[in-house]
Design a protein around this nucleic acid. Structure first.
Lengths: 356, 356
DNA sequence: GTGAAAGCGCTAACAA
DNA sequence: TTGTTAGCGCTTTCAC
């Protein structure tokens, strides 16, 4: 049992036990706050533990407790878009969610594991299940970004707490999302209040849930303010700057171009700004422009871009607290939670009354 | 041994062994590619493993092998600046490093653990050591961002492979960095070539290593091009937009304002742009401006910001490969690596000849 | 209140 | 080539 100079020497439970003249069991119980241990013993042991800078071997603890103290956040997408810690910048949208999840988890001493599920792989179902297994998470957070069939999650939920973020899948799976309808209505209505009637939309890719949700919101809002929907006022982008630029070019080439355009995210709005600029027009005088997500970039471009801010960090925190609650609860509660948070329109300098 | 409906049922090594009619040991060896196992047995076992979607319990494996298959990336800073996955946006600089590290690690099936060390805590040394212990990493990547005393790392390196990123600490600790001198020389020289002699500098906080390195580079380059250094042409920022704005205001109020200013990062350059704009001046006509880091923002502002691009992802990959090499090597090699990568000046629209 | 002992799932000598 | 056995460091009944 001689310790050679292998690795950094770590004090183990056993070492503390020997020094305190008690058994390993007692040390373990003491450190885990079991009330049956004598106050004096607890005191001695905590003192020793502090002195030796003791931290339990987490692998041993997890193996023994058969929990991983980990919750996984799943996100779907094309494998090519994902690169370890980094997602494409047009997805910056997600960062605050990560932040909320990760902070909440670390406060509760849980691990955060981020899993990327390849959309292209046909067997997303197996993918999720096997990832869930191998990461051996105690709970799952699933970021829903498309319109696929996720019904298999419901049976899984019986064994492993599952929460969906961004979309409510069914009554039986708890969900946390932000109100895309309110967000889009607020922008369309704001534009209408300024006097715009020719309001176009550069949307995200139509396989993306947020994109169709915002598009639907746009259509519904138009109706609400009494403007008839025109198909040529809608173009589909892919969330990236370049696609916004292309979309705006298309719109500008119309015989009757719009006086305002609502983009489904800031990146596309910024691309749109470039197109307007290149066409020799001015924002907002010739075209009013509005984005979505309220990213840092919207404050940095000129004119400053109006946008819709979403309480994403809060969304992440709330969803995480809910999985944690489910994990520690003995059994799955009957009542599932469905939370919808409101976004907020942020007015900057990219909109004004129409000049035509 | 009945399995109640607790958690998702996972196949274990033992299950495979029973089915294959061999011992656990054989299964383990087969799955780990030990050449001594008969080809037929290997085939059978791999087939079974695939059928059962077997993945080893990583906690058990790590406990047994006494490795964590984890490498930690340490970064220092004020605790208030850090929030789980997110670092302040002015630190976006680091993202590509993370990307390189994280990608390389996941290719090699290693875990990535990111540790934030509080600069304010006086005992950074204990901090690093205890973090290293509790995360039980097999190797350490340390991002050096300040000028403190890190000599204690050298003794640690005997037990745990350590690589520093961003700065060479000593001959005995392998390091990977990007040439700040070349980067700054390229910008100063470019400005001089355009005809500028009044070249100011908005630097990062002077406790930050990159900031002083770039400042020194600025001073040295000035000398090289035969321009005398003026103290009033240097202002200290804190990497953030606002500080760049303040810095530029100070510069603009000088009796003899500069015709060009070199900012130590893009964020401050963008703040500087705002100040110029508010002063009713135009970039680059009245003031040439240049940033550092070549972030996405530099392409989005108007005029497009010239900047210095750094091969940070490559830096991260190279450093990671080196720790991995050290981890798998039996003993610490005598020869330490010291790599210095060159940055690249990216010319956009924010610089021209001086008008005065 | 405390200790003994079994066990979590896997790896690795050493035998066979 | 394969099996036996003994841990890895911790938690957790169950006796005492």
């Amino acid at each position: 049992m001689e310790e050679k100079a292998k690795r950094v020497i770590k004090t183990r439970l056993e070492d503390l036990a020997r020094e305190a003249n008690v058994s390993k069991a007692t040390v373990s119980l003491a450190l885990n706050g079991n009330p049956k241990v004598a106050a004096k013993t607890v005191e001695l042991i905590t003192k020793l533990a502090a002195e030796h800078n003791y931290t339990p071997n987490s692998f041993a603890r997890r193996l023994s407790k058969r929990t991983s103290e980990t919750v996984s956040l799943f996100m779907m997408g094309k494998a090519t878009e994902y690169s370890g810690w980094l997602i494409p910048s047009s997805w910056l949208f997600y960062n605050p969610i990560f932040k909320g999840v990760s902070l909440t988890l670390s406060e509760k001493h849980y691990q955060f594991s981020f899993e990327f599920i390849d959309l292209d792989g046909k067997k997303r179902e197996n993918n999720i299940i096997s990832h869930a297994q191998s990461s051996s998470a105690d709970g799952l957070l699933i970021l829903i970004i498309d319109e696929s069939d996720y019904s298999f999650l419901e049976s899984l939920d019986a064994f492993l707490p599952i929460i969906t973020i961004n979309k409510k899948l069914s009554d039986t799976l708890s969900s946390f999302e932000i109100d895309n309808y309110k967000g889009t209505f607020d922008v369309v209505n704001y534009l209408a209040t300024l006097g715009h009637r020719k309001i176009a939309h550069i949307g995200g890719p139509f396989h993306a849930y947020n994109a169709v949700d915002r598009f639907n919101g746009y259509v519904a809002s138009l109706k609400e303010i009494g403007v008839t929907f025109r198909e040529d006022y809608v173009v589909e982008g892919d969330w990236n700057i370049e696609s916004g630029k292309d979309g705006m070019k298309t719109l500008l080439n119309l015989s009757e171009p719009p006086t305002a355009v609502f983009c489904a995210n800031d990146h596309m709005a910024i691309g749109a700004m470039e197109a307007v600029e290149e066409a020799g027009l001015t924002i907002p005088r010739d075209i009013s422009l509005i984005g979505y997500d309220d990213t840092e970039m919207s404050r940095v471009v000129r004119p400053r871009l109006s946008s819709v801010s979403q309480p994403l960090e809060k969304l992440g925190r709330m969803a995480t607290n809910e999985v944690l609650r489910r994990i520690t609860a003995k059994s799955a509660p009957e009542s599932k939670k469905h939370v919808v948070l409101p976004p907020l329109l942020v007015k900057r300098d990219s909109c004004c009354e129409p000049s035509r």
